[in-house]
Write a protein that binds this DNA or RNA. Structure first.
Lengths: 173, 173
DNA sequence: CACAATTAAGTTGTGCACAACTAAAGGGTA
DNA sequence: TACCCTTTAGTTGTGCACAACTTAATTGTG
């Protein structure tokens, strides 16, 4: 049941691109395919982790925050945001929910009253044991080998860097 | 300014994996890197499109919906959701906003009163011209060549299929 | 035909992401 | 010291995503 457009061949699906530059319509079609794929992949990934994390009670973003805290220990909100690429507008309510769940505490720093230090509670630290199985399940479900996962990670990281640079460097675009 | 853990070597960053299976801690670290990268890449992509789409007034998900409608024309909400991998819980309010913006109309189908057909308005169809420049700007900002973009698209699509299959096939996980 | 099961769309509630803004603390310089 | 500027969190408002549920129309089967 092909749902292909009946008008023209589609270089993005045939894998053959004509030597002349693609038309605006062809670019829109490629854009559709690439954007859809990335957007859908991101949400599929979220869905997988939602499922795998179910019995830990964590959401996917909360799991990401816990991964940082498990690995590096307590740190200011600011630094956590740098790791997670999130600002306080997202982190403040996220951390508030995690505090309500008993996973972390937040305390104003004594040295710098502007800064708030995020610490794991005993419960939060203990949750690491229950999350031990998560990465393996996720990698298995992704159908990627370890090597492939590492390579994909590097590639995607370069992509992010390029996108952020484009956004930051040229205010025009 | 390495922020590496001081305890063990990190196969995910050194690019060398020991022959023995990775420890649970190493898997958590790899998981952190891969999840972060994918999640951050997705949001960086969103951010780029948010910027590039600014003067069209479209959000990124709205642009994705418009891409489908521009390419394939009117269709039921159900089918639009299949293209976009979105259910009515997301699509209903999204389409309502797009209708308020004058981009689409929604009409109950006469043949099947359960179904709602989504159609572009003249204004919505005309917006395609103003969006002609979007894909090129996006691809340039991503630092990908056309070939690379196509290949990445295929790879990411396979990943999504694997994830969805894992979610659907085994209710255990 | 009658009635249960299915399907399509919408609604409700929760959480994430981000822009724009506010509040408070810290740092630098005239 | 007094003032301004920067930094750090937090708040507000909007939109997306999804689970769970509701409503209404259609289909299938006895």
């Amino acid at each position: 049941m092909s749902r292909q457009s009946d008008r023209t061949a589609d270089p993005a699906t045939t894998g053959r691109t004509a030597p002349e530059p693609p038309s605006a319509d062809e670019l829109l079609r490629l854009d559709r395919q690439l954007c859809f794929s990335l957007h859908a992949a991101s949400r599929a990934f979220d869905g997988l982790y939602r499922r795998v994390l179910r019995d830990t009670g964590l959401t996917y973003p909360q799991y990401l925050a816990m991964l940082v805290l498990w690995e590096y220990g307590e740190m200011p909100v600011k630094r956590l945001g740098e790791y997670l690429r999130l600002d306080s507008g997202t982190l403040s309510p996220l951390l508030k929910r995690m505090q309500s769940a008993g996973l972390v505490r937040r305390e104003r720093s004594a040295q710098d009253e502007r800064s708030v230090t995020v610490r794991l509670t005993a419960e939060g630290a203990a949750l690491k044991e229950r999350a031990q199985g998560v990465p393996l399940k996720a990698i298995e479900a992704s159908g990627l080998g370890l090597e492939e996962a590492v390579e994909l990670q590097a590639r995607v990281r370069r992509l992010t860097a390029a996108l952020d640079a484009a956004l930051a460097d040229e205010e025009k675009l």
